[in-house]
Design a protein around this nucleic acid. Structure first.
Length: 862
DNA sequence: CCAGCGCATGGTA
DNA sequence: GTACCATGCGCTG
């Protein structure tokens, strides 16, 4: 509140108009200025009693249905003080908080993303839209009650559902959210801002709205227009427009005719359409939608499970809206289950989708819903729900003819869209027969254009490639997954279906496993920074970390080195003969590589050719490579993929982390971080904050993870120094080595296991690959690779970090830990050793690594 | 006996 | 622990 000593002004409150000698700041005006209030009004305003003081006789007054408190419902100041009840009447926020039993509509953004008011045109549009749909069915919509004559209507309602009355409830429910949003905004404005910023949401003034909302409808709070940064091009202002409600609207509608209140739930109206209609952005707005770029209700979709995100194709869009200038707004989709496609003819609708996009129903019998298919044929389904576990199961009944008409079956996808501005609900179908791989590629590359069997992916790839964000990629990965899970399934009886819920879910898991397997075996170990990309290097506790700004490339893991001539090279192992070949440093090798592909050294292009480097030489170059592994490498048949991955992970990671100074030539020390540490890598070193999301760690960051990392780095340094001292001591007193193990400050490492780990039968050398008594229990591949995990310093075992995850590869080995199981076997496990402060749950999020694979790296020692 | 309705159950997220 | 949801299953006509 600010004061001024100027005079001649009147209190902004029209019911007061008291000359102001001093005035204080009230609510914010549309101009950006603030209402100047007299002391009394300002005080009342500050106390939230503005209405009760100054609007007592104005229209729009109502009593809280619970406590009876009078609240002026049209007041711009107090309109956040109450909620509208579905059954009519209002409830003050205090009471509402107590009795609020409905969750905010899930399809809408967090409360803080709402604007407090809505423009009339939006309301009109919504009403029109709703009426069109509602009135189109053979069964008339139930008359909605007016807002403020609740008593008469309430009797119609089922007890226990005070907030929901048919169609209007949809509006009111939104208002509840809206109200709460304001409340939330009020109470936690600062936090909201922070959160929003943290989430990288667009926060800004809603200029468009500002110009269109009357002063009396304005809320004193800053107009926030918040839009998630998603691929939907809807602007922040668009978002605000969509979510805008005005108190004036509410006031004006208090006595509305019931019929006029029947409208499409505004909350379910995608903002894109609001914008198009509301702003008259016909050409522009619709064009955007027509191109398929602005698809779906981005807010709604963000709140829906990804599997329900609409992935309608351009062709579908065009097909739907071909006969008119309508704009199609994809709402959601669902993969048909056996039950859905069964003879029963009931399509179970995802609850959130139903509540977000379909008319609100209060009675289990629901409402007839007129739906148009892609051919323009209209169907009428019964949209209803069953009470279920204190919740509801929404179903569309009578869909069998439509499903059959579209020749859909279990596993296929039904899409629900809405035509704007008609408001028609459109149901589309998509066969699951499109080959998963195609779909996957298409989905991955084109995102929202995915899954159209007839789509020309080529163009879309081009189109989508520009401006693809990681979030998009991640989202599209969902599509890949889900696409993959869609398999043609013969239509059959429910009980015989192989697409039961369990099966479906198992399928999802299996797909995930496949993805993981692929990731692990073929991608994880193969991703490398592009040789043309110069990484930026940042330092954490003297450890230089390379950060790559570009996506990694897929290649075979190699060992970078410098040859005798000082040239950068890399060593690569032939998959067939397991011999190591030298290739140029910039050579990109396929995941499987054999000597025959050695175009750089024709004399070594045959497996029969001798290894250019002797084992000893190679060992000299890479001391961490275990001699035993070398010895075994030719004797054991391996799964090359897994070994490649293991090599990539274990050897390279350890090379990178443990031994840059010790192992590699000086010239390569700076550059040789683990190649996985690049953009998209979410390992702790690179970006991983404790929460699993968020910005990268600053060098000065003192978060738990960073502190852990720093502590660990320090430990490593210390140990290295100690190790050096030990070596020196060993020279003088070799016999003392075996008992040498100086505790360090890494509290997370189990000392006993580590000590055990360090005690090696090899004199003076720790060989983790040796576990004579348990050899038979370990995969043969474990020890076969020359690059297998082996350590000269056990301390390094605990610090292999690597991984991609945000690239969609889905791997991020945060850490490995030596653990001692009951048998005395020391194993690596997918748990974190970086710091005791790290909770396992935090870590598990990043451990997509299959346990068996991780475990397979277990090098045991006794 | 069968189809369909409506709710219950249990697996999964 | 909770909500969701696929489907089982009993009841009814």
């Amino acid at each position: 509140m600010s004061s001024s000593s100027s005079s001649t002004k009147l209190c902004f409150n029209s019911n007061c108009k008291e000359p102001l000698e001093k005035w204080r700041r009230g609510w914010r005006l549309r101009t950006g200025e603030y209402a100047d209030l007299c002391d009394r009004c300002a005080s009342a305003y500050e106390d939230g009693k503005f209405c009760e003081t100054f609007h007592l006789k104005a229209t729009g007054w109502s009593c809280c249905g619970s406590c009876g408190k009078q609240i002026h419902c049209g007041c711009i100041v107090s309109f956040h003080m109450f909620i509208l009840l579905d059954a009519g009447g209002i409830e003050c926020l205090t009471c509402a908080k107590k009795s609020y039993i409905l969750t905010p509509n899930p399809a809408w953004p967090p409360p803080s993303q709402f604007l407090p008011s809505q423009h009339e045109s939006l309301k009109d549009l919504s009403m029109k839209r709703w009426s069109l749909i509602a009135g189109s069915g053979p069964v008339p919509w139930r008359k909605a009650p007016s807002f403020f004559n609740g008593s008469g209507v309430q009797s119609e309602l089922q007890p226990g559902m005070p907030f929901e009355v048919d169609v209007v409830g949809g509006i009111d429910r939104f208002r509840i959210s809206d109200r709460f949003s304001i409340f939330s905004l009020e109470k936690k404005q600062e936090n909201s801002f922070d959160r929003l910023i943290d989430r990288k949401l667009i926060v800004g003034p809603s200029e468009t709205l500002e110009n269109e909302i009357s002063a009396s409808n304005r809320e004193e709070k800053p107009n926030l227009s918040v839009a998630s940064v998603v691929k939907n091009e809807s602007s922040a202002s668009n978002m605000s427009l969509a979510s805008a409600f005005s108190s004036k609207y509410e006031t004006n509608n208090m006595n509305h005719d019931c019929a006029s209140l029947s409208q499409w739930p505004t909350l379910s109206t995608p903002m894109g359409k609001h914008v198009s209609s509301h702003n008259g952005m016909n050409s522009a707005g619709e064009a955007v939608v027509h191109t398929g770029k602005a698809r779906g209700d981005c807010r709604g979709r963000n709140q829906l499970l990804p599997r329900y995100w609409p992935r309608i194709t351009d062709k579908e869009l065009q097909q739907i809206s071909s006969n008119s200038n309508s704009v199609i707004t994809p709402l959601f989709e669902k993969i048909l289950t056996a039950s859905d496609a069964g003879r029963i003819g009931r399509l179970v609708l995802p609850k959130k989708c139903a509540e977000a996009y379909l008319p609100l129903i209060s009675q289990p019998e629901g409402l007839p819903l007129k739906v148009q298919d892609l051919k323009g044929k209209e169907w009428i389904f019964q949209f209803r729900f069953w009470p279920n576990n204190n919740s509801r199961m929404y179903v569309l009944e009578g869909i069998t003819p439509c499903i059959q008409s579209m020749q859909l079956q279990a596993g296929d996808v039904v899409t629900f869209s809405r035509l704007e501005p008609e408001g028609k609900l459109v149901m589309g179908g998509r066969k699951a027969s499109t080959t998963p791989s195609d779909q996957g590629v298409e989905a991955t590359l084109t995102g929202n254009n995915a899954l159209a069997p007839e789509d020309d992916s080529g163009n879309q790839i081009t189109k989508a490639d520009s401006g693809t964000t990681w979030s998009e990629i991640c989202k599209r990965r969902f599509k890949v997954n889900e696409t993959l899970e869609v398999k043609p399934i013969s239509h059959s009886k429910r009980k015989n279906s192989i697409l039961g819920s369990k099966g479906k879910r198992l399928r999802v898991e299996n797909e995930d496993l496949i993805e993981l397997k692929i990731t692990w075996n073929q991608a994880q170990g193969l991703m490398r920074p592009s040789p043309k990309i110069v990484p930026t290097v940042f330092v954490v506790e003297d450890f230089e970390i390379e950060e790559f700004e570009h996506a990694p490339i897929i290649g075979r893991p190699t060992i970078p080195a410098i040859d005798h001539f000082g040239e950068k090279i890399q060593w690569v192992q032939c998959d067939d003969c397991l011999k190591w070949r030298k290739v140029p440093a910039n050579a990109l090798l396929p995941s499987r590589w054999t000597c025959s592909e050695n175009v750089w050294g024709l004399d070594r292009s045959l497996c029969s050719a001798a290894e250019k480097l002797s084992t000893e030489e190679l060992e000299d170059m890479i001391p961490t490579i275990n001699k035993v592994s070398f010895k075994k490498k030719k004797n054991e048949k391996r799964d090359s993929d897994s070994i490649v991955a293991l090599e990539g992970l274990d050897a390279l990671a350890n090379l990178a982390i443990q031994g840059e100074e010790d192992v590699l030539p000086a010239s390569s020390q700076t550059g040789l971080r683990h190649p996985r540490h690049k953009l998209g890598c979410t390992c702790i070193v690179c970006i991983q904050p404790p929460s699993g999301k968020g910005p990268k760690h600053e060098q000065t960051c003192d978060c738990v993870v960073c502190k852990s990392l720093k502590r660990r780095c320090k430990t490593l340094r210390d140990r290295r120094e100690k190790k050096q001292l030990e070596k020196e001591a060993e020279t003088a007193y070799p016999s003392q080595l075996q008992t040498e193990q100086v505790p360090d400050n890494d509290s997370c490492v189990d000392d006993s296991s580590e000590r055990k780990f360090l005690i090696s039968p090899l004199k003076g050398q720790i060989d983790l690959n040796i576990q004579p008594e348990r050899d038979e229990e370990v995969s043969p591949g474990l020890y076969s690779g020359a690059m297998k995990c082996s350590f000269t310093d056990a301390t390094d075992v605990n610090f292999s970090q690597q991984g991609y995850s945000s690239l969609g590869v889905g791997i991020n080995v945060v850490g490995k830990q030596m653990q001692e199981d009951g048998t005395g076997q020391a194993n690596f496990s997918n748990s974190v050793t970086l710091d005791c402060h790290l909770e396992k749950t935090d870590v598990d999020r990043h451990l997509i690594l299959p346990m068996d694979t991780a475990g397979s790296t277990s090098s045991t020692a006794t």
